[in-house]
Amino acid sequence: MSATAILIKDLCKEFPVPFRRETVKAVQNLSLEVPAGEVYGLLGPNGSGKSTTMKIVLGLVRPTSGTTSVFGVDSRRVESRENVGFLPENPYFYKYLTGLETLLFFGKLCGLAGSPLRERSRELLHTVGLEEAADRRLGGYSKGMLQRIGLAQALLGEPRLLVLDEPTAGVDPAGAHAIRDLILQCKQRGITVLLCSHLLGQVQEICDRIGIMDRGELLAEGRIDDLAGKKNQIELVLENATPALLESLGAMSRASGAQVVSQRGARTDLEKFFLDVTRHRS
């Protein structure tokens, strides 16, 4: 069993431009490795090649050159997807199926059947908080509910790798919070996660390492603290501090050669405030 969940080597993908001899280079010489159990964030502006990379990892798109493998199995092989769960951006499912029927359908595609499939589907509906909507058709689901049923179908086959493309796109803060918690639960259970997101705050909270892509190239890669942390600065949050204490702290800092860069009243996290307010109402 490979300790590397995703291995990408010298990956290039070019798309031909219709009626021209030109090609668009979507991915250029990309090499990266995601060890098993890690949460890896793939960041970049629109058109940077993130989704193409994801699709190649999932075997949906063929690379022009280079190789990708999932747990040591070539991505082009069907078997490489036996350990993978995928949630596409803004997922659409068959609207005429209920939540439970959707999971039963995708479960059968994962090779599950009978009562184990039914039990696993019920368990996942509970996990994503859709137990009460299990027998409702997906046509009546909200965007957040669709994302959650999408996450449930991705988790059906007990995957060792989760590939999530903008998992909280268009979801309200409460829904986004619930999805983030689910991803963190997966992380705790040792599931490797490849996450594409524009919500940098969320990525910072969840991911162990990130890679930043632009125009098909990997520009930076590493641990978030190493990439974004300010090594010579430290934050200090005080409660009930008097003006005299602040004055003396400032004087001590200056005396030791340090510099107070900023000083402002602390604010609560806006997401936390929003969730507190809406939770009280409900």
Binding site: L60, P88, C110
Partner: peptide, 14 residues
Amino acid sequence: EDRTLYTILAKPVS
């Protein structure tokens, strides 16, 4: 168009 194809082919389905 609905991208349900992606979700299906991302499973071990040829």
